[in-house]
Design a protein around this nucleic acid. Structure first.
Lengths: 231, 231
DNA sequence: CCTACCGATCGGTAGG
DNA sequence: CCTACCGATCGGTAGG
């Protein structure tokens, strides 16, 4: 029985109208396998087997293997852009914008590891014209962070001499989370999100968050003890 | 005509004795293609074509496709471990150790993008028992960084509340470099290496390097102007 | 949802 | 280093 959590969430997205129940199952099984073994390392037979089906049956729900990859990558990138844009829109303060954007970025990677692993690994497996479209969305995404950091430098709240390098460092931090985070592991999602929110400010040379950070974001922060000591 | 630079460097490594000239060419062509399209996305015919050969000819120089992958991954991981260990061994100062380790890590990723891309992407494509061996080496590598940061916290020179999260952030930063760095791009290798050396100290909450860093490492640092303005 | 089947391609071998 | 060829597997279709 497949877990449709995120696939179901995306079921009604974009112009491709509502996806059938069974099509969601196929996408979800593919999501798991593509993330584990890669696109080229997964066969339609593998996906079918995960659903206790024969490969040809999949074609009642999807038109091609490549279509599944395209759907996953396009929806994920649009979703991520939306989430982070919305996180940034909540405030006019540049420092807080960066904190919230970094937190949203990290949280998304913790919650959707399969999607972002595929997004980061399978670009070469995506056929044109979609590969170019995804590449453009990715550039737009990183550009948001670079522009924000440049603004902070102009305002004098960040001191980094390379907003580009700082943005890349922050983005990579989140991508890394998708490679090792497990909900049942020693670090909670919030601990990771908050720690890396602080770290992002350290990366740009802003108030480090660690060395006596003001409670810029008052709510729901864990008490300041060592991270990773979940009882 | 293949460029053997790094492959040639590794030709005499490990117990597998000297590799023949032609075998180096095959490994080098495979390195490029595996890095670009992935292991499963590359056929022996593709590798042969890059050398103007037919696929069966490759088997005069390598015994199997999987063997090429194994060689690349094992040698790369051993090489990286050696380079970073040696960078750390040059001093007893924990802060400087971390700076040098981070710099060596970043520099290696800038110089060997194909190797580390494969190392980070093709773990699932590697068959046992080598996959377990590589996983163990990788854990050893990240453990070096974690242990070093823990030591700095004990000494009071770092303030991070999670050496693990800090180590992962620093490691990811370097991995990211391998995805976008180009020698003919706007940022020089040294600019990236030094900036991320500073950033690493910011990540652990040490002296940020940006905010009035002492010239801990005296030599060959570029003048302190904005990064990325190569003329 | 299945079985039967398609042409294409895969990694690899035989034999020179 | 090649041609010829092996069995296996690939994504996908026909037809029910």
């Amino acid at each position: 029985m497949p877990k449709n959590e995120s696939a179901a969430r995306g079921a009604r997205t974009r112009g491709d109208r509502t996806r059938s129940e069974r099509s969601i199952d196929v996408h979800d099984a593919a999501l798991t396998l593509f993330a584990e073994r890669g696109y080229h390392g997964t066969s339609m037979k593998d996906i079918a087997a995960a659903l206790h089906l024969r490969a040809p049956s999949l074609y009642n729900h999807v038109s091609a293997k490549q279509e599944i990859l395209r759907d996953v990558m396009v929806e994920t990138m649009n979703d991520l852009l939306k989430v982070v844009r919305s996180a940034m829109a909540g405030t006019d303060d540049t420092v807080l914008k960066l904190r919230r954007a970094a937190e949203a970025h990290v949280r998304y990677h913790a919650r959707h590891p399969r999607e972002v692993r595929i997004g980061n690994h399978e670009i070469p497996a995506l056929e044109e014209p979609h590969r170019s479209a995804i590449t453009k969305l990715r550039r737009e995404y990183s550009r948001m962070f670079v522009a924000l950091i440049e603004r902070g430098v102009e305002e004098g709240v960040f001191t980094t001499r390379s907003p580009l390098l700082s943005a890349y460092a922050i983005l990579q931090m989140g991508i890394g989370v998708s490679m090792w985070y497990r909900p049942d592991g020693p670090l909670s999602e919030d601990e990771i999100v908050f720690h890396y929110g602080d770290t992002a400010l350290g990366v740009v040379g802003g108030v480090s968050g660690r060395a006596g950070a003001p409670a810029t974001e008052g709510a729901k922060r864990p008490p300041k003890r060592a991270v990773g000591s979940k009882k």
